[in-house]
């Protein structure tokens, strides 16, 4: 239903400029500029003139600081893997529609829209040592001591999982159900059992979507902040890199140092993305050739 003219140059006229300018300027001014400013600032050290890598040096010489990189990775990677594997299983199994689909997807949207604060508060209550889950388990005799699921690493992972899983599941569900169903049918007619169909036909076609999902979930998990504070040990075992950045900015009022940490965070995320892209290229070179979409 789109009518698009052929001559590219004449398409960008005064009207186009007028329409695009506000949003373009806004994104440039409020996104790109702060970003660049942040990088610039990260190279300034308080009370020292001129450019310097002092902030970065300080970050990487303090185990309390650079240790956050490892901590954050060790939170983000397992979470991402678990979320992805479960989402894939579920999305694949339900690719042809499921009972009460609309109701279930609506309920799954809840964590996303309720937001992380409410979720974390609820997790504290439900999974806490006095919470309903432990009460039920103890009352039914399954355990005698409550599971410690909050104010630690597990609490943060729980929160991350509940936030990321619905999002990843719905994303993959949309992607997988967009794959031409007759590909599956034809594979079965050729003698492939359902597991062969998955392994040799569907998985290669799902791979691009998986890579994107992995990237998105990882990047969002890596930036985890409020749940790390509320459900973890922000001063210790779950001191993530965003906490370190926040503290520099708003507790010690050292903006340059905070910017440096934000840059490091961004670089880690970028590095992970690059790795995912490279990995994907090696794995399925032909997947990009006319993927079988409906």
């Amino acid at each position: 239903m789109r009518a698009v003219a052929n001559d590219e140059r004449s398409e960008f006229d005064a009207l186009a400029l007028f329409c695009l300018l506000p949003s373009l300027l806004y994104v440039l001014a409020m996104f790109v500029y702060p970003f660049l400013y942040g990088v610039y600032l990260s190279l300034q050290v308080q009370k020292i003139d001129g450019f310097s890598l002092g902030n970065y040096v300080a970050f990487f010489s303090d185990a309390y600081q650079y240790g956050t990189i490892w901590i954050t990775f060790s939170l983000a990677i397992p979470t991402t893997i678990i979320v992805l594997v479960l989402s894939l299983c579920l999305a694949y199994g339900m690719r042809r529609g499921f009972f009460m689909e609309r109701t279930i997807t609506t309920i799954l949207i809840m964590p996303i829209s309720l937001g992380v604060i409410l979720l974390s508060e609820g997790i504290l209550g439900f999974y806490g040592s006095q919470g309903w889950l432990n009460q039920m388990l103890i009352a039914s005799g399954l355990i005698s001591e409550p599971f410690i699921l909050t104010h630690n690493y597990i609490g943060v992972m729980l929160a991350l999982f509940m936030q990321q899983f619905p999002f990843c599941f719905l994303m993959l569900l949309g992607y997988i159900s967009g794959i031409d169903p007759s590909l599956e049918s034809s594979a079965r007619m050729l003698g492939a059992t359902p597991s062969v169909v998955f392994r040799r036909v569907m998985l290669p076609l799902i791979a691009p979507g998986l890579a994107i999902a992995f990237a998105l979930v990882f990047v969002m998990s890596f930036a985890v902040f409020p749940s790390a504070v509320m459900l973890g040990q922000p001063a210790g075992a779950t001191r993530t890199i965003s906490i370190a950045a926040y503290q520099k900015a708003f507790e010690q009022y050292d903006m340059p140092a905070a910017s440096a940490i934000a840059v490091v965070m961004g670089l880690c995320q970028l590095a992970a993305l690059v790795l995912i892209i490279l990995f994907r290229r090696r794995l399925s070179p032909a997947a990009t050739m006319g993927v079988g979409k409906r």
Binding site: D180, S186, M289
Partner: peptide
């Protein structure tokens, strides 16, 4: 049985 589909259903990621 063998089957030929209306939209061919060739595996796009295979030669």
């Amino acid at each position: 049985f063998g089957m030929v589909f209306q939209n061919y259903a060739l595996f796009p990621h295979m030669t």
